[in-house]
Amino acid sequence: MCGKCCHGLRLPLSLSEAGEWLRRGGDVQLFCEAIPWPVEPEESNLQARHKRRRSFAALSGDLPIRVVVSVVASFDGPCPNLLPDMRCGAYEARPLACRIYPAEVNPFIELVPASKSCPSEAWAADQPTFLQGGRLVNSATVIAAERFRLNDYHDAGIRARLCDELGIGVASLANEGFVIHSIERDVMTDALARIDRDAGAGVEPANWQFVTNNTSTRDTLLEIGAHVYAHETASSSRTMQYLAF
């Protein structure tokens, strides 16, 4: 109950959680990144398989890509559900990402306590065992992380329809940053309702554009036939922001 992990968040949500967050009066954004995907990797490449399952196919000019879209509750300061005594005011309905923290959702990222917001006493010997030999042993957290990943995989194609509904088609190059699309609450709520009604509908691979502030990245993308959106235009947009790592 230190509340350190409940401030200044970019909190990843499933689509059902996003709907609930909006109903509670919150706002959500879409964080978009894309991975060049000219050929399918070997099935034995588990990291590539993970990326494929949580993304959807698209094009950027002549370049096949996979687009990863994260639906995120983003806010500065305390979470709107945080009470003055640092208890969660929506504890029973809190998102899976809150239930998982400080564990990692990505199975290929190691949990490093020093990189987390938790105070040092949370890891003291007299506390319940959370990690053992670098391995997560808290069973409730392990189950929550697996549920999060399954939701993430399931929602990937639906997020493609959401972007189509919202007219979104600009992403960063993965590992360079994110393109953040800020959508008005009513617009997002209506779009989620429409894709829910059209649950069986598919979307043809859309043509996406990359944003980068790196000149060499931009030149390489253009050389391989991708479409590149002007970084200056993204930077001046009211509804779109480029966040570089």
Rank of each mutant, 00 (worst) to 15 (best):
I109N: 13
R94H: 09
V112C: 07
E40H: 09
L59Q: 06
A114W: 03
R49N: 01
S44W: 02
K116I: 11
S60N: 04
R54W: 02
S115P: 01
N81Y: 14
L111V: 15
P95H: 11
A57C: 03
E121K: 01
S16C: 08
A73Y: 01
A48W: 01
L83A: 10
Q127F: 06
G134W: 04
R52S: 07
L59P: 00
P64I: 07
E92Q: 13
I35N: 00
L82P: 12
Q127A: 13
S14W: 09
S14N: 12
L96W: 06
P64C: 02
F75L: 07
L131H: 04
W21V: 10
I35A: 00
I35S: 00
V67T: 04
P113Q: 09
R23T: 01
D76P: 02
G26I: 07
E92V: 14
S16T: 15
A93W: 00
P78W: 02
F108D: 13
C32S: 04
A34T: 03
N81F: 15
S16D: 15
E92A: 12
A122E: 10
T129I: 15
H50W: 15
F31V: 00
V69M: 05
E42H: 05
Q127E: 10
R66T: 04
V71P: 07
E121T: 07
L82F: 14
V28K: 03
G77W: 10
C32R: 02
A125K: 11
Q29L: 03
A48Q: 08
C88V: 08
A90V: 07
P128A: 11
V112R: 14
R99C: 09
E40I: 10
E121F: 12
S70L: 08
K51P: 00
Q29H: 04
E104D: 11
C88L: 06
V72S: 02
A18R: 10
I100H: 07
P128D: 13
R23F: 00
G134C: 08
G19P: 06
N106R: 10
W37T: 00
S120M: 03
A90S: 12
R49M: 06
Y101I: 12
L82M: 15
H50L: 09
R53S: 13
V28H: 02
A114I: 05
E42V: 06
R53L: 15
R54L: 14
E104P: 07
P95T: 09
S74E: 15
S55R: 04
G26R: 11
R53C: 07
D62R: 15
P41N: 02
A48I: 08
S70H: 06
F31K: 01
